[in-house]
């Protein structure tokens, strides 16, 4: 972690917090009308949301597919929703939104993670690679080529996640056997059932020496 960065941050947050505290104190209690009790309780603490709405985004600095960006995000926005809805990078897919399918897999600082369970605001200063960032111009990444060659998909919806995960699986050293690949790719569900072909694609890239 960059020391300078972490030293600067709290100050900024303090500012934001006092602003929120002010807003809280000055707002008027509104009627409770909330379905789940937990939300009701939270809403009581979350007074004046309407007033504070304009202040509720925080800038976050990200490098996405090699391009530096500063984005205003709500703390509750996931990286997945920011990619898809704010940046129109729809190659990263929403399959469950609960971390149970792997369709939203991206690389953050080179590691495969689930963008649906990652708050965008927590990715400050990080490098995000999505499926759109794999090809170099017209030249596909070897894993993309292997997926086409081995027909590692049908509907194509889980495919970006499978490809991002497959590349990482090799880099992590978990692609040494078919069984190994199957175990370490099990977080990526394919309902069309292209699994054996996906495994073949990963094996081929692994054996060909992956350059990513």
């Amino acid at each position: 972690m960059d020391k300078n960065k972490s030293n600067k941050k709290p100050e900024k947050e303090d500012h934001q917090e006092s602003r929120r505290d002010f807003l809280k104190a000055s707002s008027i209690l509104t009627a409770i009308a909330v379905a789940p009790a937990t939300v009701a309780k939270a809403a009581e603490y979350n007074l004046g949301e309407k007033i504070s709405a304009a202040f509720e985004t925080t800038p976050v600095n990200l490098t996405i597919n090699g391009v530096k960006k500063q984005l205003p995000v709500e703390p509750r926005s996931t990286l997945l929703d920011v990619l898809r809805e704010q940046l129109d990078l729809t190659g990263t897919k929403k399959g469950c939104d609960y971390g149970q399918c792997g369709a939203c897999t991206v690389h953050v600082n080179g590691q495969r993670v689930l963008s649906c369970l990652s708050l965008a605001v927590m990715q400050e200063g990080k490098e995000v690679t999505t499926i759109e960032g794999l090809a170099k111009g017209d030249e596909l990444h070897p894993m993309q080529k292997a997926f086409i060659k081995h027909d590692g998909f049908q509907c194509g919806y889980c495919t970006p996640g499978q490809i991002m995960s497959g590349i990482a699986c090799i880099n992590e050293g978990h692609a040494n056997s078919k069984e190994d690949i199957k175990e370490f790719m099990s977080g990526n569900i394919c309902r069309c059932g292209a699994y054996p072909n996906i495994v073949k694609a990963i094996q081929e890239v692994k054996n060909g020496g992956q350059k990513s």
Binding site: S6, K9, P10, R20, L119
Partner: peptide, 15 residues
């Protein structure tokens, strides 16, 4: 999801 405050802690004590 409700809107919440977000803070980065730089020390365990701050957290």
């Amino acid at each position: 999801m409700i809107q919440f405050q977000y803070e980065r802690a730089s020390t365990a004590k701050a957290a």
